[in-house]
């Protein structure tokens, strides 16, 4: 349209063509609304929900660039640019929370991510269906236990009179102390309990992927003289690789996103140097210290990093393995 000649006649003509097209379009939309009126009626609550509970808070993100004033409200508060971001980056907490978030995630990826994959592979080698089902049912269970209860049990068992606290003390030959008060143990406790809670549940996906592998591949491998181990290495593992990669992309995208709940329930001032993460810092600054704008800036900083990470890993994965989310 833009490249047509500029003589007045043609212009008028192209404009009228545009008008006709627009009219057709509107007619089409009107018909669509008429035909699908029930669908749109049904969609209305959903749309309203997303606008109010998802988009209005997004509008509120702007307070990260403002000095939020309770009385003036979001829109009327004065703009301050990147003031809060600069303050965060220069603060003592920046290195601490970014590093802790990364480290917990990193160790999580190193240990908690492969655990259900290995578990699924081993479970697949169990011959008795009944035994396999039983183990599955049992290991699903912790997934349904609430975070509060899991952390509550950790508190009780890791206390100086809890069985884990006592066991560690016996092992080291020292006096029993509360393990949660020791910064050395925080990550270990966090990740081990994560594995305990999720290994069974997360393995469902990989078990399903293993079951989805074509049996003919195994038969071919057997004919080629492959034993059980060779079959696992050359058939099963390549067979579940696409699933593993998709999960890994998700995982990488969440690298700087350590959930609030568990850290919050397990940490205390004695371990802050290793346990304070971005989400807990955001909470303390935002809701406890009422630094609304500053907290929003920290949280936005985190969101942007997460998005960049997700996009990057997705991009790399698409180039390298042709598996990607989007």
């Amino acid at each position: 349209m833009a490249k047509t000649s500029t003589s007045p006649g043609t212009k008028a003509k192209s404009e009228s063509v545009l008008m006709v097209r627009l009219k057709d379009h509107f007619k089409m939309i009107r018909r669509d609304i008429h035909v699908n009126k029930h669908i749109y009626l049904i969609a209305l609550p959903m749309i309203i929900y997303y606008i109010i509970f998802k988009y209005v808070p997004m509008y509120g993100i702007q307070i990260a660039f403002k000095d939020y004033n309770l009385i003036k409200g979001i829109s009327a508060s004065p703009w301050v640019g990147f003031k809060h971001f600069i303050k965060f980056v220069n603060s003592y907490y920046f290195v601490r929370v970014v590093k802790n978030t990364f480290m917990i995630s990193f160790y999580g990826t190193l240990f908690a991510f492969p655990a259900p994959i290995i578990f699924a592979l081993l479970l697949n080698e169990i011959r008795s269906t009944k035994f396999r089902r039983t183990v599955q049912t049992i290991t699903y269970m912790p997934h349904f236990v609430s975070t509060v209860v899991v952390c509550g049990m950790i508190h009780m068992f890791c206390a100086s009179d809890g069985f884990l606290g006592v066991a560690v003390a016996n092992l080291l030959g020292t006096e029993a102390k509360n393990l949660l008060m020791n910064p050395k143990y925080f990550r270990t406790i966090y990740i081990l309990s994560d594995i305990w809670k999720n290994i069974g549940w997360n393995s469902i996906l990989y078990i399903a992927a293993i079951l989805g592998i074509d049996q003919a591949q195994y038969e071919a491998a057997v004919i080629d003289g492959a034993g059980k181990f060779a079959q696992a290495i050359y058939v099963t593992i390549p067979g579940i690789m696409p699933t593993v990669i998709i999960k890994l992309i998700f995982r990488m995208g969440e690298m700087m996103d350590v959930g609030f709940e568990k850290v919050f329930l397990l940490y205390n001032e004695a371990t802050w140097q290793v346990s304070d993460v971005i989400s807990t810092y955001t909470y303390r600054e935002g809701l406890l210290n009422m630094n609304y704008s500053y907290s929003s800036a920290v949280s936005l900083f985190n969101t942007v990093i997460n998005f960049v990470l997700l996009w990057t890993t997705n991009f790399i994965s698409r180039k390298v393995s042709e598996t990607s989310l989007f």
């Binding site: 749309i47 997303y50 109010i52 509970f53 998802k54 988009y55 209005v56 808070p57 997004m58 509008y59 509120g60 993100i61 307070i63 979001i74 955001t282 909470y283 935002g286 809701l287 609304y292 907290s295 929003s296 949280s299 936005l300 969101t303 998005f307 997700l310």
Partner: peptide, 19 residues
């Protein structure tokens, strides 16, 4: 599209609280 966006972007703690 409107829904998918919300899977990647969210207001965060404070804007949600203010809402």
């Amino acid at each position: 599209i409107m829904i998918t966006i919300t899977m990647f972007v969210s207001g965060g703690l404070v804007p949600n609280y203010l809402l």
